[in-house]
């Protein structure tokens, strides 16, 4: 319990059907830190979040969250654990049939018997923290992408979770919203004394924000370190990713027969 790591992932292997997604992953996420998992699309980043949330079960290896082995928990145990986790989904995943207020109040109403006045105060506090107290009456369809993401963030931290997970929090945002969300991730982590995992491929925004980075490629961790170490990293895969080069170890061309053959030059 007193372990300094909130999450430990030990030798985890996972695959959908026969296709392996993660191979022998080792990861430690210390309490109170903001850790990023980076990699190109399809590298298995989101799968790690699902394993931590107990949505998926590892085929081999162990996922330890707050001293508990996810594999050994039953459904109730996982649900109890999830109440202490908040997750921000890629596009917010706000409930479209509920107003902003009701979205943030959702978990409070489902999991607590708090009186409505207290729920109201808590919701206004969370909405104020993301700067959208004034928008509490709106429906999700009336929000811009950045606002929806902020509401979803307020909803994710409604129960003051110990762990906040972000699945591609920057996708499709304008630069201002991007900066706002980036700030909030850092601020909320400190204000709540929580631990955060940010899954992303948005390099520049993330490197200025997090404490530690794992770089994932094809289900394997190829590099890890602090943001500065990542910038200096000589591994060609990482260099290509960090500096956004078009060609490199990740080839520009889809595997094909020799160019000349297709053009019938021979």
């Amino acid at each position: 319990m007193a372990s300094e790591n909130l999450i430990e992932i030990r030798k985890v292997t996972f695959g959908y059907g026969r296709k392996p997604v993660l191979k022998d992953i080792e990861m430690k996420i210390p309490r109170g830190k903001v850790v990023s998992i980076m990699g190109i699309s399809g590298s298995g980043k989101t799968t790690i979040l699902r394993l931590v949330g107990g949505v998926l079960r590892a085929q081999r290896g162990e996922v330890i969250v707050d001293g508990k082995n996810i594999d050994e928990l039953d459904r109730d145990g996982i649900y109890r654990l999830r109440r202490r986790m908040g997750m921000l989904f890629q596009f917010g995943a706000l409930f479209t049939d509920l107003s902003v207020f009701d979205n943030v109040a959702f978990q409070l109403r489902e999991h607590t018997d708090l009186p409505e006045t207290m729920i109201r105060d808590l919701v206004y506090m969370k909405l104020h923290a993301v700067g959208l107290r004034g928008a509490h009456r709106l429906m999700p369809s009336e929000l811009s992408g950045g606002m929806a993401r902020r509401v979803a963030l307020a909803r994710a931290v409604a129960l003051d979770p110990a762990l906040i997970m972000y699945d591609e929090p920057f996708t499709g945002l304008d630069p201002i919203s991007l900066g706002v969300i980036g700030n909030l991730i850092r601020k909320l982590n400190e204000a709540l004394g929580a631990t955060s995992i940010v899954v992303t491929h948005d390099v520049q925004e993330t490197l200025g924000l997090v404490d530690y980075v794992y770089y994932l490629s094809e289900g394997v961790i190829v590099a890890e370190g602090t943001p500065d170490e990542m910038r200096e990293n000589a591994e060609p895969l990482v260099r290509q990713f960090v500096y956004g080069e078009a060609d490199g170890p990740v080839a520009f061309q889809y595997p094909a027969v020799e160019y000349g053959k297709d053009l019938r030059l021979h």
Partner: peptide, 9 residues
């Protein structure tokens, strides 16, 4: 939204 609900226990 369904996954989000699932993650909110």
């Amino acid at each position: 939204q369904l996954s989000a609900m699932e993650m909110m226990a």
